[in-house]
């Protein structure tokens, strides 16, 4: 073995994320993960205080999946998101202030108070929107990828969906068309084990959702969705394939939601032991420890990032509180494009 080989081997032993991303990008990623966690906690708290109505689906525990998936994306790249979509929105670059404003039903929100949690979107950063319909975003993502291909652009579309969506017809139709037309779309399944209360074992005929990829002649990969680097590495391959015009991929991030499905969940379908075992695999704590191990930051600077995220969330909530509500005379505004007289 030559000296040169040794050096390369040592480098290869580093986690993908440490090798591939700059220290600044890695620190920004950790901050975004904190921002998601704290945003979700802030939203939950605001809901409890009666500042947010309706319902919401929290993604606490799934932060690595959202942030690592979006690491290599630019604003020109698109995502379609799900009912559990707050993390995706932040990962793609949205401001938490305008997100809180949306949840508070305010005119300054991303959807001017018309969409709320389940339709949160930020078209300017490429987020085409969360979706209240399970599987609703899958064919839409394929359409976005079709646009890129037809217009000769090299942007890609990331289609987030949950394990529950893999049994919708839309999933199968979307994957088939994406493959037939070799479109630049990556289907990212956040498999958190339960579609509402029904476990993947009780609902799905395959062990892993990535196994479905074989049926649509595309690569399928199952990764530890709570391991930032593993997700980023799988996405790196899939995005490179898409940008090269080689077609779609399916990436399955195994993860877990710490909270219930929505605010009505009484948690009767899973055990305390199971929840605790997944909380012990906290994606944020793991990523933070990895970054400290590899000298990207120290405990103090990590805490500073967390505090910065706390400040952003606190400021965001204040912005939302102070923002004006929509005019009640404008119920039908935005149904159609406003036509100038």
């Amino acid at each position: 073995m030559t000296m040169k080989d040794k050096v390369e081997t040592a480098q290869d032993n580093l986690p993908f994320a440490i090798r591939h991303f700059s220290p600044d990008a890695l620190r920004a990623a950790l901050k975004k993960m904190y921002l998601i966690r704290l945003f979700e906690e802030g939203a939950e708290d605001s809901y409890t205080r009666g500042l947010i109505h309706g319902t919401m689906h929290l993604s606490i525990g799934q932060e690595a999946s959202a942030v690592a998936t979006c690491m290599e994306l630019t604003d020109a790249d698109k995502i379609t998101s799900t009912h559990r979509g707050h993390g995706h929105c932040i990962a793609k670059g949205a401001e938490v202030g305008r997100m809180f404003a949306e949840f508070f039903g305010k005119e300054t929100g991303y959807c001017h108070g018309r969409g709320g949690s389940m339709h949160i979107a930020d078209v300017k950063t490429g987020n085409l929107g969360a979706n209240g319909i399970v599987g609703g975003g899958l064919p839409i993502a394929v359409g976005a990828a079709l646009t890129a291909k037809r217009l000769g652009r090299d942007d890609v579309t990331i289609c987030f969906f949950g394990d529950g969506a893999n049994n919708e017809g839309a999933f199968h139709e979307a994957l088939n068309m994406a493959s037939v037309w070799k479109l630049p779309v990556i289907f990212v399944c956040e498999n958190n084990k339960y579609g509402m209360s029904t476990s993947i074992e009780r609902s799905t005929a395959v062990r892993y959702i990535a196994d479905r990829a074989v049926a649509y002649s595309m690569p399928g990969e199952t990764v530890d969705g709570n391991d930032f680097s593993a997700v980023a590495e799988a996405m790196h391959r899939a995005i490179a394939r898409a940008r090269a015009g080689e077609g779609p991929s399916l990436v399955e991030n195994l993860t877990y939601r710490w909270r219930g499905h929505s605010k009505s969940d009484r948690n009767r379908y899973r055990t305390k032991d199971e929840i605790e075992s997944w909380m012990a695999r906290d994606p944020i704590a793991r990523f933070r420890a990895d970054l400290i191990t590899h000298g990207i930051l120290n405990d103090e600077s990590a805490t500073a990032l967390q505090q910065a995220a706390e400040a952003d969330v606190a400021q965001g909530i204040e912005f939302a509180k102070a923002s004006p509500a929509p005019q009640i005379t404008e119920v039908t505004k935005f149904v159609h494009a406003e036509v100038s007289a």
């Binding site: 899958l138 064919p139 993502a141 394929v142 646009t147 217009l151 139709e173």
Partner: peptide
């Protein structure tokens, strides 16, 4: 490329059209 036969997938096909319309076609 401009006159595209779709598979017999009405739900998916309509959704692809929605996504394409959302993004510039």
């Amino acid at each position: 490329d401009r006159v595209m036969d779709t598979p017999i997938s009405e739900l998916g096909g309509a959704g692809v059209a929605v996504g394409a319309a959302l993004t510039g076609l």
